[in-house]
Computed example of a mutant assay.
Amino acid sequence: MSTTVIPPLEDPVSPYEFPDSRKLHDAAERALDYYLTPAAKIMATPYTPNDMFRVNPQTDTESLLANACESLASATVMLGDFAGLLEGPNRKTLLGIAQVVMLGELAVNQALENVEVKQ
C-alpha cells in the first residue's frame, strides 16, 4: 500500500498573510517592472529627431566640425570638473564618459584636419 502525500492547502511561509498583502505585492511588481525595464520600451521606440533645433544645411563642413570640436571640448572640461567633486565608482563612471567625449573630440579634430578648404 503506497501513501500519497497531499500538500497543505495553505503555504506556511506565504508572504500573503493578509488580504492586502497580494495587492501590495502586485503594486511592487508593477513598480519594479516600470523602473527596471524601461530600456526595452525605449529600444522598441524608433528614434525621431526633434525638429525644434536644426543645423542650417547651408553651413559648410569645416564650420560644423569646428563647432562640434568646441562643444566636445567644453563637455570634456565640464565632465572633468564635475568628476572632481565625486568619489568612488561615480567618479570613475564620469571620468569614463569624459574619456569617450574626448575621443570624439579627437576624431572630429582629425576630420577637421582632413577637410579641404574650398576657396
Rank of each mutant, 00 (worst) to 15 (best):
N50Q: 09
V108T: 02
N114Y: 15
P46Q: 13
D11Q: 03
I42Q: 01
P57H: 07
E62Q: 12
A39F: 00
A68H: 07
L106F: 13
A31E: 15
P38L: 00
A31T: 13
P57C: 03
V108P: 01
N56C: 12
Q110K: 09
G84M: 03
A40D: 02
T3C: 07
L64C: 04
G80F: 02
A31W: 14
T48S: 07
T45L: 03
L24Q: 03
T93S: 10
E17F: 02
A75D: 05
T4K: 03
R22N: 12
S63N: 06
V101S: 04
M78L: 14
D26R: 05
F18N: 08
P46M: 09
T59G: 01
K23T: 01
V77C: 04
A75Q: 11
G96E: 08
Q58N: 09
V5E: 07
A73S: 09
D26S: 05
L65S: 02
R91W: 00
Y16K: 07
M52L: 10
R54F: 01
L32H: 13
T61L: 14
A39R: 10
P15W: 14
Q119W: 08
A75G: 04
M1R: 08
V100F: 10
T76M: 13
E116W: 12
L86G: 01
G96F: 01
D11R: 13
A111R: 06
D60E: 05
L95A: 04
T3N: 08
D33C: 02
N109P: 01
I97L: 08
Q99K: 05
N50S: 10
H25A: 10
A27N: 12
S71M: 04
G88N: 08
L85K: 11
E116T: 02
M43Q: 00
R91N: 03
N50L: 12
A98T: 09
E105H: 14
P57K: 11
A111Y: 03
L79G: 03
T61N: 08
T61E: 11
I6A: 03
G88I: 04
E17S: 11
T76L: 08
P8Q: 15
D51S: 06
S21D: 13
C69T: 05
K118C: 04
V117D: 14
L79P: 01
N109Y: 12
D33A: 09
I42A: 00
Y35P: 12
D33R: 10
S2I: 15
L79R: 01
T61H: 07
L32I: 15
L103W: 00
L95D: 03
S71T: 02
D60K: 00
V13L: 11
M52A: 11
A44L: 12
S2W: 14
L64V: 07
Y47T: 14
A83D: 00
V13S: 09
V101Q: 04
M102C: 10
L106N: 01
Y47Q: 11
L103C: 10
Q99N: 12
D26T: 02
Q58C: 03
T59Q: 05
A98H: 01
Q58V: 05
L103R: 06
T45E: 12
Q110F: 15
E70Q: 11
G84V: 08
V13K: 14
V115P: 04
M102A: 12
T37K: 13
V117M: 10
A75P: 09
N114S: 14
L94R: 06
